[in-house]
C-alpha cells in the first residue's frame, strides 16, 4: 500500500512538471466554462445537471490522454523492467499510476467548484443534485481513467494507447444504443453495460447504489486486467 503511494506521488510529480498536463487541464476548464456560461445565460437556472453531462462527455476524450503515458511509456523506455524487478507488487504499480491520474481529476473537479460558487452568488441552487453530481463525476472520471490505464498497459505507443482508450470508452458509452435494436435480457444487459446510463441519476440528485457498484466494478475490473497484462509481459 505504501508503495502504491510512492508510485502515485512520483506520477503526480511528473504530471505537475510536464507542460502537457497544464495545457490539457486549461483546455478542459476553458471548454467546460464555456458550456457553463452558455447554459447559465440561456437556462437562467441555478443548476449544474446539464453541465455535468457535458463535462463527462469532454472527459471521455481527455481521460485517455491523461492516462496514455502511464504504462505505455514505461514499456517503451524499458523502465517497466526496473519497476517489476523492484520489491513493488504489480498491482501497486498499476493502482499507484491510476491513483495519480485520479488525484489530478479530483484537482480538476476542485477547480470546477467555481461554478456552484457563481450559482450561489446569483441564485439559490438546490445543493443535493450538485453534490450527488460531483460524486457521480468523481466515480465516472475514475472509471474512465481506469479504462485508460488498461489501454495504456496494452501497448508501448502512447498514441495507440490514447486512441484505443477513446475507442473503448466511447464504445462503452454508446453501447446502450444497441438495446434499441434488441429486446429482452440482452437489451437490458447492454443498457446496464453502457457507461452513459450510469451518470444522469447522479446529476439529477439521485444516488443509486447500483451505479456506484457499477462504476467501482469498472475501476476494479480495468485495473485488475491491466495488472494481469503488465504481469504477462514478464513471461516474454
Amino acid at each position: 500500500m505504501r508503495n502504491m503511494w510512492i508510485i502515485a506521488r512520483r506520477e503526480l510529480g511528473s504530471y505537475f512538471t510536464s507542460p502537457i498536463a497544464y495545457i490539457v487541464v486549461a483546455a478542459l476548464i476553458a471548454l467546460t466554462s464555456n458550456f457553463f456560461s452558455l447554459i447559465l445565460f440561456f437556462s437562467r437556472e441555478a443548476t449544474l445537471s446539464y453541465l455535468f453531462s457535458n463535462l463527462i462527455t469532454i472527459m471521455l476524450f481527455v481521460a485517455p490522454i491523461l492516462t496514455m503515458r502511464l504504462l505505455a511509456e514505461e514499456q517503451r523506455s524499458g523502465t517497466i523492467e526496473l519497476l517489476l524487478t523492484s520489491p513493488i507488487n504489480d498491482w501497486e504499480v498499476v493502482w499507484g499510476k491510476w491513483l495519480a491520474s485520479f488525484i489530478l481529476w479530483l484537482f480538476i473537479l476542485l477547480l470546477t467548484l467555481i461554478y456552484p460558487f457563481i450559482l450561489k452568488v446569483y441564485g439559490s441552487p438546490d445543493w443535493g443534485p450538485i453534490w450527488s453530481g460531483y460524486l457521480g463525476l468523481m466515480l465516472m472520471g475514475g472509471a474512465l481513467l481506469a479504462l485508460g490505464v488498461f489501454t495504456s498497459s496494452l501497448t508501448q505507443n502512447q498514441i495507440v494507447a490514447a486512441v484505443l482508450g477513446v475507442v473503448i470508452t466511447l464504445g462503452l458509452w454508446i453501447v446502450g444504443g444497441g438495446s434499441q435494436l434488441l429486446s429482452g435480457p440482452l437489451a437490458s444487459f447492454l443498457n446496464y453495460l453502457a457507461l452513459s446510463n450510469h451518470i444522469s441519476d447522479f446529476s439529477q440528485g439521485v444516488i443509486d447504489i447500483k451505479h456506484i457498484i457499477y462504476l467501482l466494478s469498472v475501476i476494479f475490473g480495468s485495473l485488475y486486467i491491466a495488472t494481469r497484462v503488465v504481469e504477462m509481459r514478464r513471461w516474454r
Binding site: 443534485p129 450527488s132 444516488i207 447500483k210 457499477y214 466494478s217
Partner: peptide, 22 residues
C-alpha cells in the same frame, strides 16, 4: 470478472436509491 458481474447483478436487483433533491 464473473464475480464483478454477479455483484452488479445483485446490486441491480436489490436496488437502493437516495433522493437528494430538496
Amino acid at each position: 470478472l464473473a464475480i464483478l458481474v454477479m455483484i452488479n447483478f445483485l446490486a441491480n436487483r436489490h436496488d437502493k436509491t437516495f433522493d437528494l433533491t430538496a
